[in-house]
Amino acid sequence: MHGTRAVILGAGIVGAACARELAREGCAVTVVDRGRPAAATTAHGEGNILVSDKGPGPELELAQLSGRLWPRIIDEIAERDADVRDLTEWDPKGGIVVATTDGGARELTKFAESQRAAGVRAETLDAASLAAAEPYVTRDHTAAIHYPDDAQVQPSGAAAALLADALRAGATLRSHCEIQDAVTRSGRLTAVRTTDGDLIEADLFINAAGPWAGELSTRLGAPVDVRPRRGDVLVTTPLPPTVFHKVYDADYVGAVGSSAEDLQTSAVVEATRGGSVLIGSSRRRVGFDDRLRPDALSPIAAKALRLFPALADVPIMRAYGGFRPYVPDHLPVIGPDPRLAGLWHAGGHEGAGIGLSVGTARLVRDLLLDRPTEIDATPFRVDRPAVLGTTEKGRAA
């Protein structure tokens, strides 16, 4: 593996995490991005590192792996860069899921029970415990579950920390460098051609282009069905301490897991280190249309007020949105592409890419080195019907 030339196509947090893992193993890593590092999807996320929103299965296992890795990686980087804790704003503050209907309470309780069986810490809160944990949350609730292992980072800062550690290990970065097409020899990807006409040669290429991974994979000759899914967030002016955990309503899991193209909204409320409160969230498939839409922002705000009535008079400072890489079966795409030797994929995490980035990179590293992986990587394989755009029976989807 030492000296292997690896090109990471995408300098968001997933690409940065992959670059770090491979550079520290001695690969000659080049990170290529058509814009600036962490300036697209990564910069438009909330920085969530969650187990609370994932039911038993492969994605939860990847989230649990990532949850173990995040504090260890930050500690490792801190040995070389004392400022990394301030840069990443690592905060293992935990999450609280609140139901406000009887039906929501039943579903939340059932969901938490299934998670506990998979090793997730999920603690039922009574009314007094919830009030102590979140003094400003609604008292009109029917159930609440505390997830101590949920955490948060500042996404751009975390990506910058991972990328900087990769550069310290010898990686190089090429910004404002867009890939036009592929060069193949004997069925193997050997180089990519940029829109400037340059050739970048390597032994392997990792598609970590986030929501643009589908478009990029088509240019490379091995399409994967990764599409953009829009999400929007409101940001309040800085407040005194008001929200102490990541708090969301029990509808959030259903909105994330929905495959519907129309608008899905739920209440997600959390504070940042600077005092602003982030209010989400929405999911809608609108291609790469980047307009902010009142019909998405208004229901987000209304649902957040059901959770935190005290926010009613708080000014909204700004709103932002971004594209999440959506795969129809809601599982990431991680590993080698069997159709084109030399091409790998690391993406399709939708809104969970910040949290799952380091676990994804660890899987990529171990698969490349032919090491045993810490979790089963098979469910994330590239040749799944959902990824290749076919049904289980092989018909076009």
Score class of each variant (00 low, 15 high):
305 L>D: 06
167 L>C: 07
395 R>G: 06
228 P>L: 12
49 I>R: 02
2 H>V: 15
331 L>F: 02
172 T>W: 09
211 P>G: 13
329 D>T: 10
217 S>V: 08
268 V>P: 02
392 E>I: 07
232 D>R: 05
323 F>W: 11
90 W>I: 09
41 T>I: 04
256 V>H: 04
313 D>W: 00
272 T>A: 15
263 L>R: 04
347 G>E: 07
303 K>N: 09
307 L>T: 03
125 L>C: 13
269 V>H: 08
383 D>C: 11
90 W>N: 08
380 F>M: 03
136 Y>I: 01
212 W>N: 04
24 R>F: 11
112 A>Q: 08
208 A>W: 05
376 D>E: 11
285 R>H: 14
394 G>S: 08
238 P>W: 05
373 T>E: 11
21 E>I: 04
252 Y>R: 06
140 D>E: 15
348 G>S: 07
252 Y>P: 04
196 D>G: 13
307 L>K: 01
352 A>W: 08
54 K>P: 07
381 R>L: 02
248 Y>T: 02
302 A>R: 14
348 G>Q: 00
65 L>Y: 03
65 L>P: 00
305 L>A: 12
103 G>L: 14
226 V>T: 04
24 R>D: 05
188 R>V: 11
109 T>G: 15
387 V>F: 04
349 H>P: 02
57 G>D: 04
359 G>T: 12
